[in-house]
Design a protein around this nucleic acid. Structure first.
Lengths: 221, 221
DNA sequence: AAGATTCAGATTGTTGAACAATTAGTATCA
DNA sequence: TGATACTAATTGTTCAACAATCTGAATCTT
């Protein structure tokens, strides 16, 4: 039985290579706007140009790379408009998640777990982990929709956001205020106070969008 | 100035070939489940295997093709679960579109135009056109969100639906009842009666999902 | 006859080299 | 200084090759 997706370094060379590049993208080497030369990267990764071009197609369709015909591929550099767009997606999908919430949904338990871990990480001052868990929290929230496709779409915009976060050295206060907001949102969801959850989501997204926009304009200079 | 996307047959060979295959997919040759052999299709389309593989990556990421490692690519065959998933996406995004509706939004005028053309096509008995315009109507509705990414996501699920419709010979009554429902939905939106629009959307989606599921189970036999 | 095994042929996965088309950088010229 | 021409580098695409894997048919067992 062929194994389509293992958590380890398995899969076809294209899939593995895509994962390798994606990791470097969200880690922040390969900064936004950097050109990726076919020959150069192929040699560096030890794969052929043809294979790498397949990888580029994959990552481009996920908006992590930008294709300019006859000029090459570049690391996507989300601009203001992209951030605004991304937060519109989040608003629509996460409102949908609230509407789809049912008491005792398994995703709620997973959100609780992530929220608690996030709280502890905050107390410890482990801000990189807080950032990861923050995104994880919202990714899990979308599971309330129980829709593979909505989750996939959401995953794409989160990956784009990670591209921005990867640029920030001082992650300290980027995610810090959101520990509380997430906890409040979750508790509203757990107790079925959907209107309140909706309001909490609004304020979360507005504040988050604002801080990402701030990061963008800071970097762009 | 490089031209990324012309409506004509322009663009890189990969893009053009992808479009050619996509057209054949939604037209209904290349039926769901059919295996696409690399060598065969490459020869048929007059492109190299490497180029075709890039195209396959592209169409697979759009869920029009299914990749099975070491076995090849197959035309995607949406099953019941996929249809249910697709209609969850539609519910969430199109509710978002209703929430984003503002009086006099340009998308409303475009929807009106599509709706009117659809009405006339129905009177003429041009059911294939009615089908096209029906999807076009809802695609336009999502433009109310003014989000490139939400539109892209929605476009993907519509393409999947077209894959199903391409299988149906008798398109007569697949889209017929929806002319009225769309008109009612639009008039609610135009006059700002958003709650009513929401109810109209619900009933549209439920009926549409039911008819698509019926098509699926009919084909699968 | 039904089921397991083996094996050859076909298909996918991946590479390397090649060449045309386009772009980028540089030197030249007005 | 600014426009032009030219060369070098990069992308776009193809082809041929070979290893790895799969498919299907023939063979062997029970």
């Amino acid at each position: 039985m062929p194994n389509a997706e293992t958590s380890e370094g398995e899969g076809s060379l294209v899939v593995v290579t895509a994962r390798r590049i994606r990791e470097r993208l969200i880690a922040g080497d390969l900064p936004p706007g950097r050109k990726l030369s076919e020959a150069g990267l192929a040699a560096e990764l030890g794969v052929s140009r043809n294979t790498l071009r397949e990888v580029f197609r994959l990552l481009t369709s996920q908006r992590l790379l930008t294709y300019i015909p006859n000029r090459g591929v570049f690391v996507a550099a989300p601009h203001e408009a992209a951030v605004i767009d991304i937060y519109r997606v989040r608003l629509v999908i996460q409102k949908g998640a609230i509407a789809a919430t049912t008491p005792g949904h398994p995703a709620l338990a997973r959100m609780r777990e992530v929220s608690d871990r996030s709280q502890k990480a905050g107390e410890r001052g482990d801000w990189p982990l807080v950032g990861t868990l923050n995104l994880e929290f919202h990714r899990t929230m979308v599971e309330l929709c129980e829709s593979e496709r909505l989750s996939a779409c959401f995953e794409l915009v989160l990956a784009e956001l990670r591209l921005v976060f990867g640029q920030v050295k001082d992650t300290a206060h980027l995610h810090a205020p959101f520990i509380e907001l997430n906890a409040a949102l979750l508790s509203a969801l757990e107790t079925g106070r959907l209107a309140e959850a909706s309001a909490q989501l609004d304020s979360y997204l507005i504040r988050s969008e604002r801080s990402v926009l701030a990061v963008i304009s800071r970097i762009r200079r």
